[in-house]
């Protein structure tokens, strides 16, 4: 199996490899030839290293996103610094902050205005599940109800390193895509996550390892 490689972090140390591997299997279910495969690699390399994000921030997480762009964390190192204000030119929408009922159609519209391929990262508790405002009458409980989300970055707000980590996860996801043949990113258009989160059978977290750290 082709394992996406990210500088400085070994494949095994990334979280949620299972979902990624399942995705690889699904994408590779159709065979492609070698030439096209090499082209795919080139394109994915380009795409994954040139994630221009839309400057979209609604609340607290947006400030951490700004910190990410500033000198200390400097996401320009990854080539992400070309933030675009126009959704047409953006590859990525970072939903940083709470999405309310009034904002939901606006977000959807922004997403629709983006050119393919487009990716969505849900940053922080509010975007993932409504977070602190889950029980509010005016807050959307998770942006995955209206747009398909590629990576979830938990935190309230996540620290800039955590956002960078999330961006690398997204890079991994982009690197396994297929532009020619196979199922590409557009296939999942319209597939929204509306099923409730089942809390039983939750994966067990390795406490021993955590206790040591």
């Amino acid at each position: 199996m082709k394992k996406p490689n990210i500088k400085s972090i070994p494949y095994e140390e990334f979280k949620d490899n299972e979902t990624l591997e399942a995705l690889i299997k699904e994408i590779n279910s159709e065979r492609t030839n070698v030439v096209v495969g090499a082209l795919d690699d080139l394109i994915n390399w380009g795409r994954s290293n040139s994630m221009w994000s839309l400057t979209f921030a609604t609340s607290c997480c947006g400030i951490e996103f700004m910190s990410l762009g500033a000198a200390r964390y400097d996401f320009a190192r990854f080539g992400f610094e070309v933030t675009r204000n126009s959704p047409r030119q953006a590859d990525l929408i970072m939903v940083a902050g709470t999405i309310t009922h009034k904002m939901a159609p606006v977000l959807k519209r922004l997403y629709d205005q983006m050119a393919d391929p487009k990716y969505v990262v849900a940053v922080g508790g509010c975007a993932i599940s409504g977070g602190p405002f889950k029980s509010s009458y005016h807050v959307l409980n998770g942006v995955d109800k209206i747009i398909p989300v590629d990576v979830y970055i938990p935190g309230c707000p996540p620290r800039p390193e955590a956002i960078l980590y999330g961006m690398m996860q997204l890079q991994r996801k982009v690197k396994i895509e297929k532009f020619f043949g196979g199922k590409n990113h557009r296939a999942k258009k319209g597939e929204m996550n509306n099923d409730p989160i089942i809390v039983t059978n939750a994966p067990i977290i390795d406490n021993e390892k955590l206790s040591k750290e």
């Binding site: 979280k15 989300v149 990576v151 979830y152 955590a162 996801k173």
Partner: peptide
């Protein structure tokens, strides 16, 4: 802090 995942259920 390295907790980002692809699937909401993994959180």
């Amino acid at each position: 802090f390295e907790n980002a995942v692809f699937d909401r259920k993994k959180l």
